[in-house]
Design a protein around this nucleic acid. Sequence first.
RNA 1: GGUCCCUUCGUCUAUCGGUUAGGACACCAGAUUUUCAAUCUGGGGAGAGGGGUUCGACUCCCCUAGGGACUACCA
Length: 444
Amino acid sequence: MTVKVRFAPSPTGRIHVGNIRAALTNWLFAHRHGGVFVLRIDDTDLERSTQAFEDGIETDLTWLGLTWNERYNQSKRFDIYQTAAERLKAMGKLYPCYETGEELDRRRKVQLSRGQPPIYDRAALALTPDQIAALNAEGRRPHWRFKLDGRRVKWTDLVRGECDVDTTSMSDPVLIREDGAFLYTLPSVVDDLEMGISHVVRGEDHVTNTGVQIEIFEALGGTAPIFGHFSLLVGTDGEALSKRLGSMSIMDMRDKGFEPLAVTSHLARLGTSDPLEAMASLELLSESFDFSKLGRAPARYDPADLERLNAQVLHAMPYGQAKPRLEALGVDLGEAFWLAIRTNLAMFTDVTELARLVAGPVTPMIEDADFIAQALALLPTEFDDNVWSDWVGAVKTATGAKGKGLFQPLRRALTGMDHGPEMGPLLVLIGRERAAARLAGQTA
RNA sequence: GGUCCCUUCGUCUAUCGGUUAGGACACCAGAUUUUCAAUCUGGGGAGAGGGGUUCGACUCCCCUAGGGACUACCA
């Protein structure tokens, strides 16, 4: 079976960790099976959808490397939905309702206060053709509801196994609004059918929808795709993540300087039985993807894990990949520099600080002037790869200092800091002239 | 109020009736002539609670507690 999946975001905001996880899971699954990944912009809500958010979705997906093979806008496909709606109307599966929003709201509250489930009572189904004609004559425009069969709809879910939803416990869903706008449900089903979507992979917040959607798939004479509902993410305290989602947009992560692979590795591995580690590419990530590895319990999203993964990505980043970015920051000090300092990076932009350690200016920290003076006198004239160990050995012999007492003052004098990259390669990069100046107490 | 799902080390998870309950990350300790990083070695650390079923339960059933989702003319 050819795998064809879709990511269908609505351009009503920037995408965040919650919905990018859906995009990622679909992408990984598609690539694992040589399938097709469709980007379907769900802009049926004309009022809330904006071009800027639509562009933002493309920017974010592209930044993460989640490229798409096909792309659609639902707002350009209304005629297709209209045709499907007419078919449903002809079958009597889609029926007009004239209650106002306030009315519906009031009824719901009454039901709730009586301890009853807030389900639509299907009053509109009792309307006679004459009544409907009268209502229309009054200028009232209906919204349209899909008449549920009222049965247990079953499917075998890729992550949840055997599932069923009892559609008798649900209201008939509104498919078309009073103003004629299509609500998400119908376009989603029609497009899945029309585009030949083989697998619908999404968060478990859609399991109830699946029940009604399968009924619509079948009403339209189609076969429902295979469904997979992964568990949602929660915060570090186990509370719903949705409350903090605003601060976790992909855009923010990019602005803060996180590596895209850290973000994707994190979201791909979280909640799975695979180790939470940074992968070198999305392809590698997709090779280990398997629905059977997904847990059913909500997983905790911990930003600290993202930071760790980000560091991992940096620590393994080859020079060729870093070079253009180093150039952009004006700190491309060569491959030896990159290899010497990359394991000390948490964020890529940390390189500017580390570059300063080499190129200056560094204000030395010197406590024991005599000791440093002795060290300066012993500084070799030839700076080869062994300069650090040769020099330190000589200083050790001359002063009797050892261990921390030996290394710490030298590091402080040379870098002005208590910690940093390994001194061996660093000293070579600093060079004799600057090293000597710093040991002499000068800022260099 | 109703429906559905979930609950194993701090975290993500393995286990699919009989295990010293395994791994990864984190943490702690040690090693690698200082620190940071990396690496290696070792260590502590778990079945939400209560009832059943069974020779035997983390595993099956019920109840309770906690968490999540859904219950829109949002998606």
